[in-house]
């Protein structure tokens, strides 16, 4: 029996196209919103996953950075007449710059200490967001009015919820392509060397400072993009979405899903947003849902060191080998 020469990225494109075409058609209003959120968090998870898998660096502030991206998007939306895309791009770049600033301590630290720096940043952002909230069309720099929020402009191409979901899926694909392109080009080779040994990388002429900073910038860019998209989806944001514990949880789920492949990242985002939605829909008590969720998280971290995606890919390649053996 001949096997199809399926490559991981081909499957990915196929799946994305399928979701792009089908999801908005089959979903109701509630699930449309759940999957839109999932797409936004996929971008942030992709950022956390790739710097962890490729550089061994841990960012526990991805969700906080999303908040920053969302804040900038909302701020620009209510104070300028720029189109959504422009706001989103500025927000993503702005968040990338903060991500790069985060890389300053990262240049000298790794492992747990680096993770803790990012956790401290997440803690600080949480306090800032709670105290100043998100612009909703009010006056002043912080832009928080007490009446209901002013209109949030959506992309011209995606005014309805269904079109907006497609728009988000498209951006997720672009995000993954952006990462993959980096990995295959010069930065990817530099990162691989840095991961092995910084001294060796330095000796072979790699600008360690630049490439580490660049990695954090890219990760921040993706988070900012996700945050801006979330703002566009909901029309306004709330501080409680961007707590430090949410950032830690998202990273935990990236490990559970598997940081090395796009599948793992998507799984992480699905666990982050779709699973709680399902439990809530089934009427499971919110407190008990937390218990199940925590227990499942523990179980997955213990039993699947390569993540669930790693297990799936391992299973598939074993199957394929067996098929080849029979042929």
């Amino acid at each position: 029996m001949p096997t199809l020469p399926l490559r991981s990225w081909q499957v990915g494109f196929f799946l994305a196209a399928l979701l792009f075409l089908l999801l908005p058609v089959v979903l109701g209003g509630q699930w449309m919103r759940i999957f839109t959120s999932t797409a936004c968090f996929t971008l942030a998870a992709a950022g956390a996953g790739f710097i962890y898998a490729r550089l061994g660096m841990v960012s526990l502030t991805q969700v906080g950075l999303m908040g920053l991206g969302g804040w900038i998007t909302l701020r620009l939306n209510h104070s300028t007449a720029l189109p959504f895309e422009a706001n989103l791009a500025i927000a993503a770049i702005g968040t990338a710059v903060l991500g790069m600033a985060l890389a300053l301590p990262a240049l000298r630290m790794r492992g747990l200490y680096l993770a803790l720096v990012t956790l401290m940043v997440a803690g600080g952002l949480e306090i800032l967001f709670t105290a100043y909230q998100f612009p909703n069309g009010g006056a002043g720099f912080w832009g928080v009015g007490t009446s209901f929020a002013a209109e949030m402009r959506r992309p011209a191409l995606a005014k309805t919820d269904a079109a907006y979901l497609r728009y988000c899926i498209l951006l997720v694909v672009i995000g993954f392509v952006l990462i993959e392109w980096h990995l295959r080009a010069k930065p990817g080779r530099a990162w691989a060397l840095i991961r092995r040994s910084e001294a060796a990388a330095l000796a072979s002429g790699v600008n360690v400072t630049l490439y580490k900073t660049w990695a954090f910038g890219l990760s921040g860019l993706l988070a900012g993009l996700g945050g801006g998209l979330l703002a566009g989806s909901l029309g306004l944001l709330d501080a409680s979405t961007f707590r430090a514990s949410e950032s830690v949880l998202l990273f935990a789920l990236v490990i559970v899903g598997g940081a090395r492949s796009w599948l793992g990242i998507v799984l992480a985002a699905v666990l982050f947003r779709v699973a709680p939605g399902l439990l809530n829909n089934w009427g499971v008590d919110a407190d008990l849902a937390l218990v199940f969720f925590g227990a499942a998280l523990l179980h997955a971290v213990i039993t699947a060191p390569e993540g669930i995606a790693g297990q799936i890919i391992g299973l598939l390649s074993r199957l394929r080998r067996r098929n080849r053996g029979q042929a």
Binding site: G111, I255, D287, F293, G294, A296, L297, L298, I302
Partner: peptide, 30 residues
């Protein structure tokens, strides 16, 4: 639980304890 994680890197060990925290918080608030 911790022995199962003995050979993992410190960040993963730390993140796993978050799972335990959620279980406890859920139970206590329930």
């Amino acid at each position: 639980v911790a022995p199962h994680l003995a050979w993992r890197e410190p960040v993963v060990k730390a993140v796993a304890t978050l799972g335990f925290a959620l279980v406890l918080l859920g139970l206590v608030s329930f």
